[in-house]
Design a protein around this nucleic acid. Structure first.
Lengths: 215, 215, 215, 215
DNA sequence: CTCTAAACGAGACGGTACGTCCAGTCTTCGG
DNA sequence: CCGAAGACTGGACGTACCGTCTCGTTTAGAG
């Protein structure tokens, strides 16, 4: 998932500050950014998006609110940045040698993703951010990116292997699987049972990809 | 000592409100409920869910906050109740004589619904109520209700007419159309272009309903 | 709708929390005012006017900042009200039977006043409040009141006794003693040595009152 | 004044900074000091002492806050230094040939002084620096200097001319005039009407100087 | 048709968080 | 090395709402 790499160095200042609150060298730039992201993710996990506050994040990151507002205009943007920072920016979907295997793997990893801070953030951010054009654009492109691109890649691999026809790959069909999974997550919450991903693959995605368009 | 001067007005408005032009007879019970719902919907439309406040609703409904909290435990429940109150509690889906026509009509009306207060409310409520079991259950059942039941009904009509096989009607397939539409709404916002509904019907729902299961 | 029935239990936890540290019955009106004044005076004494904060006062009075701002528009007004509240609103100056004795007593009590919260407040408020017309007017009248009226009263007694002529009682002369004492306080601080008051009486006030005007 | 010189550069760096942000030759030592003093006085005049901030001064002087704190420990000291810098360090009081004329001239100039930045600074500084011993000492000596020394000088001239007796020149009497004027300024603000100075001379200072001490 | 208990309206109350401003310190870099 | 620039930690500001509470005032409905 990529989260592990970012956290290791960030524990050091905390244990250090335990011994001597005054010795802590003042962080700036990337170092401070990283500490803030870590704090956001921890708050997301502990109290959830709805009860995450700028003050809580600032205190946890041992900084001031001004340093947050210098970087992000509001809570939504801060949380989005924090989440995208630990998200795999783009990971090539696994190649199991067959379309169904690829899809199963893909939806399993999506389900796992939604169970972490990314899911919590997505649910909260949706509600307050779409009215802000700038942020809306960002969330759209990010959503497109992680959502559709990977499906498209495994589908194109299947086309290359001759498993399916390229004619079925319309945008609406490619996004259908992600839509069903996110819909399940948003309305029914976590954890998402394993069989749900399997059902989505077998009853929705595979039928759509193997059926000629205009069917 | 200027404090006395400041306190006198605290009492004045009260005695004044006895004589003031506030002839409005005091509402209670259902009449008050209705006024509150109306206020909630107006606020939803004007400022959106994120900036809707209990104080704003109370003022708009010309009542006190206590009257709100006497009825609903929090903002989410109030908004949900207000929205469900104006929603067609359950409408038999239109019968155009053919599956495709029924579906087109159904998704068109869903799109229109999402463009109103129901959509605004849905987006906002998702983020804060899933942690509250009581409200979560309510939103789930409501979502199931409006979401899947109507699709199931038109699908079953099509089965009766012999258009499709009943074997295709798995839960996951029945919800796919709604999921894609809501996904579009949540991530891309309103208004939802007409062609989107049509694409969902032709590229997702119809193929799924006309394809044998395990396909 | 069933919403009404659900709320009764929501009041129970509050009455249950009556056992909690929430025992304190909520204060309002004069009771709260008094608690706030007490807190202001304590803060004045402990940290001085310059480091007195609205937050500190609120916390000490165990109330919220909003309750302060509901009553006073700024720190200066709050402190002035608090001080005037504990000040002897108007005390007839002591009557020792002779002009010099009266004056000595008067300036002794003024010195003592300045050593308390009133002095601390006066020093601080002067700097920030004269630009605010409303407050400026208040401080002027208060200053006039406590400053000149008492001197005038003892002087008029002396006139009645035939000690001095009424012609010497010009405004400028009546305020001179207070001016010198306040000047000493403002520029040299507290405590004001006893001999200073005596010198003011003997070298400034008495000569002025016993000299014919235009002298 | 030298204020005009400061405004031209305010525009130059902006247009210049588009092409070359480094045009301004770096000031140091006295040149920087002077720019800072100029900025302080301008801020005093524009926003008053209470709303004068170190950041505002730094920005106006086009330097950083560190350069201020390197030179002065706090706002009070900075303002005092700035004001004393433009004040006539010590001016021999005018010699009109008679005591009354000298005094009138003296109080007129004091009134004018108080209407400028010196008055604004005095009012503000009083409230915050008396707790700081270092600054307190400075303000006392400065106050003594400008306050009493000039009066003493014109009084001694009058003694030499035989107008008054040297016995009347006690410290308390010498400071009385200044005290009344400053008291008027501090509590009633500016501008100080001309007749006030005249009254102080005729009703307070002259009577005191022409009356034998022991009243 | 009173009388009374409940509901209402208004808004104060004790708090939490907001987003901003500024203090005073520290870091980085240019000259 | 020093000065310019400005980011940093931190505290307080004044505002907006929260959810609770208290206070009169209606207004049903029971007697």
């Amino acid at each position: 998932m990529g989260t592990q790499g970012a956290e290791a160095p960030e524990h050091t200042p905390q244990s250090a500050s335990g011994q001597d609150p005054r010795k802590r060298p003042r962080r700036r730039g990337e170092a401070l950014n990283a500490a803030i992201f870590e704090a956001v993710l921890a708050e997301l996990e502990e109290v959830g998006y709805a009860r995450l506050t700028m003050e809580g994040v600032a205190e946890r990151a041992r900084t001031g609110k001004a340093s947050l507002y210098r970087r992000w205009p509001n809570r939504g943007r801060l949380v989005m940045d924090a989440v995208y920072h630990v998200l795999p920016q783009y990971v090539d979907p696994p190649d199991t040698g067959g379309l169904r295997g690829d899809l199963l793997e893909l939806f399993r990893s999506t389900a796992r993703l939604l169970e972490g801070p990314a899911g919590e953030a997505m649910r909260g951010v949706l509600g307050e951010v779409l009215h802000d054009d700038e942020t809306a654009r960002q969330i759209r492109s990010a959503s497109r990116g992680t959502g559709v691109a990977q499906i498209r890649q495994v589908a194109e691999r299947a086309v290359d292997r001759g498993e399916i026809s390229s004619k079925a790959l319309t945008p609406r069909r490619l996004e259908a699987g992600q839509a069903v999974m996110r819909h399940h997550f948003l309305f029914l919450g976590t954890p998402i049972p394993d069989h749900v991903g399997e059902e989505i693959v077998d009853e929705v995605v595979l039928p759509l990809l193997t059926t000629p368009p205009g069917g």
